[in-house]
Simulated scan of single mutants.
Amino acid sequence: MLQRIQSVYLFICILISGVLPFFIKIWTSSNKTAVFATDHKLYIGLFLISAVLAATSIFGYKKRQNQFVINRLNMILNFIIIGLFVYHSQTLSGEAKVSEKGIGMLLPIFSIVFLALANKAIKKDEDLVKSVDRIR
């Protein structure tokens, strides 16, 4: 389980989605206060669901197809988080001129990259198993 590279990628995804939103600011508001994901219940809930999906995918290593599907669902969830970040940053009045966007808005993008790398490694494992079965 842990000796596979996709498990490492998924563990990094758990760290990105489950730990970093508590410490990295998403943006700075117009009155110079840092806004974290923990300030919004929706964001922290979606980040924690993403971390749980990645953990489920790690422990579902015996069923590679299910693991692949869970990672795809997690990617869709991270795209939804990105969409909510963009929507929220564009709808606040006066936000375009006075607020600063933080590195926290990029967390779902980093998570998507590591999920895609994990899916690539899962596909490679699946192809290896299929080729060995073909030889028999």
Rank of each mutant, 00 (worst) to 15 (best):
A118E: 05
N119S: 11
V98P: 00
I26K: 11
L2T: 03
A55V: 07
R4L: 08
F79V: 13
G83N: 08
L2Q: 07
K25A: 14
G83T: 10
F79C: 11
G104H: 05
K41G: 10
Y87G: 05
S7G: 02
M75H: 00
I82A: 05
L117F: 13
Q90I: 14
R4F: 03
K25E: 15
K97W: 04
S93K: 12
A34Y: 14
I58E: 00
S89E: 14
L77G: 04
G60S: 04
Q3K: 07
L46A: 05
D127S: 07
K123R: 09
E95Q: 07
F68T: 07
A51M: 10
N119G: 08
R134M: 06
A116G: 06
S30W: 04
T33R: 13
K101F: 12
K62E: 13
D125P: 01
I112R: 00
D127A: 09
Y9P: 02
V35R: 06
F110G: 10
S131T: 13
I81W: 00
S57R: 01
A54L: 02
V132I: 13
K62S: 10
E95L: 09
G18Y: 03
S57L: 06
L10K: 00
L2C: 01
K25N: 15
K101T: 15
G94H: 05
V8A: 07
S30M: 11
C13L: 04
I44K: 00
K101D: 12
E95F: 14
V86H: 01
R64Y: 12
V52P: 03
I103M: 11
G104S: 08
T38F: 11
L77R: 02
C13D: 05
T33F: 10
I82E: 13
S50N: 11
M105E: 15
A55Y: 09
Q67N: 08
N66Q: 10
A34C: 02
S7Y: 01
M1P: 06
T38Q: 13
K32I: 11
L20M: 12
G45H: 08
S57M: 11
M105Q: 14
H40V: 13
G83Y: 02
I112G: 01
S29K: 12
I122C: 04
V19E: 06
K123Q: 12
Y9Q: 05
V35A: 05
T38I: 15
N71T: 09
N31R: 10
L128T: 08
N66G: 06
L15G: 14
F85S: 10
V52S: 06
I109F: 12
S50D: 11
D133G: 06
F114N: 04
V8R: 01
G60Q: 04
F11H: 00
Q6K: 08
V69H: 03
K62G: 03
I58H: 02
Y9S: 06
F79I: 14
K97G: 08
